[in-house]
Simulated assay, not measured.
Amino acid sequence: MEDLKNIHIGDFIRRRVIESNLDMDRIVGFMRATEEEIREMFTCSSLSSDILLRWSKLLRYDFFRLYSQHIMLYAPAGRDMISEKTPKDTLTSLPVFRKNIYTPEIIQFILELIETGKKTKQDVMTDYKIPKTTLYKWLTKYNGQVRAGKQ
């Protein structure tokens, strides 16, 4: 898994374009931009959400998830966040999502940090605000699977 601490979205998009083998004419037409503007987007560390949504549709990849995973790793939900048990009409008119959804990639990333000795269990709990019970459940459930590349 990539280090998601510093997201350079233009680079991720450029890499996906290369993987997808898309013709530049198709990209230009779909994005409603010039080839020069497209190449400029590849150098941008951030893009507006409407442009990012267009890229996500064109390349069939959820670029927003990069940011969601960043939030989960570097700014996990705290006690002051809206709980899924709180009636959504009470505190916000926005959709309420489950606050602790850890993707398999996040779990694998965390377990690899522990397994390789880059971080201790305590470091993971402190740095990423992952509850002790959650971390130990992962360690039990995925024991040895990280090294084997299973998930």
Rank of each mutant, 00 (worst) to 15 (best):
Met1His: 13
Lys5Val: 00
Lys5Ser: 06
Ile7Gly: 05
Ile7Lys: 05
Ile9Gly: 02
Asp11Ser: 10
Phe12Glu: 06
Phe12Ile: 03
Ile13Gln: 01
Arg14Thr: 00
Arg16Leu: 01
Glu19Trp: 04
Ser20Glu: 10
Ser20Asn: 07
Asn21Ala: 09
Asn21Trp: 00
Leu22Gly: 00
Asp23Gly: 04
Asp25Ser: 13
Asp25Val: 12
Gly29Arg: 11
Phe30Asn: 08
Phe30Ser: 11
Met31Val: 04
Arg32Pro: 00
Thr34Asp: 12
Glu35Gln: 12
Glu35Met: 05
Glu37Gln: 14
Glu37Cys: 04
Arg39Val: 05
Met41Arg: 08
Thr43Asn: 07
Ser46Ala: 10
Ser46Ile: 07
Ser46Trp: 00
Leu47His: 05
Ser48Tyr: 07
Ser49Arg: 12
Leu52Pro: 01
Leu52Val: 03
Leu53Asp: 06
Arg54Thr: 06
Trp55Glu: 01
Ser56Trp: 02
Ser56Glu: 04
Ser56Gln: 03
Leu58Gly: 01
Leu59Val: 04
Tyr61Trp: 06
Phe64Ile: 03
Arg65His: 08
Tyr67Val: 04
Ser68Gly: 07
His70Met: 02
His70Phe: 06
Ile71Phe: 09
Arg79Ala: 10
Arg79Gln: 13
Asp80Ile: 06
Asp80Ser: 11
Met81His: 14
Glu84Pro: 13
Glu84Ala: 13
Glu84Gly: 07
Lys85Glu: 14
Lys88Trp: 13
Asp89Ser: 11
Thr90Arg: 14
Leu91Ser: 04
Thr92Tyr: 09
Leu94Lys: 14
Leu94Ala: 13
Leu94Arg: 12
Pro95Thr: 08
Phe97Arg: 12
Phe97Val: 05
Arg98Tyr: 14
Asn100Phe: 09
Ile101Glu: 11
Ile101His: 07
Thr103Cys: 06
Glu105Asp: 15
Ile107Glu: 09
Gln108Ala: 15
Ile110Gln: 02
Leu111Ile: 05
Leu111Gly: 03
Leu111Trp: 03
Glu115Arg: 10
Thr116Met: 06
Gly117Ala: 03
Lys118Phe: 08
Gln122Ala: 14
Gln122Asp: 15
Asp123Asn: 14
Met125His: 07
Lys129His: 15
Ile130Arg: 02
Pro131Thr: 08
Thr133Ala: 15
Thr133Arg: 14
Thr133Gln: 12
Thr133Cys: 09
Thr133Leu: 12
Thr134Cys: 05
Tyr136Ala: 01
Tyr136His: 13
Tyr136Leu: 12
Lys137Pro: 00
Trp138Leu: 06
Thr140Leu: 11
Thr140Val: 11
Thr140Ala: 13
Asn143Pro: 00
Gln145Thr: 13
Gln145Ile: 05
Gln145Gly: 04
Val146Ser: 12
Gly149Glu: 08
Lys150Ser: 11
Lys150Cys: 08
Gln151Thr: 08
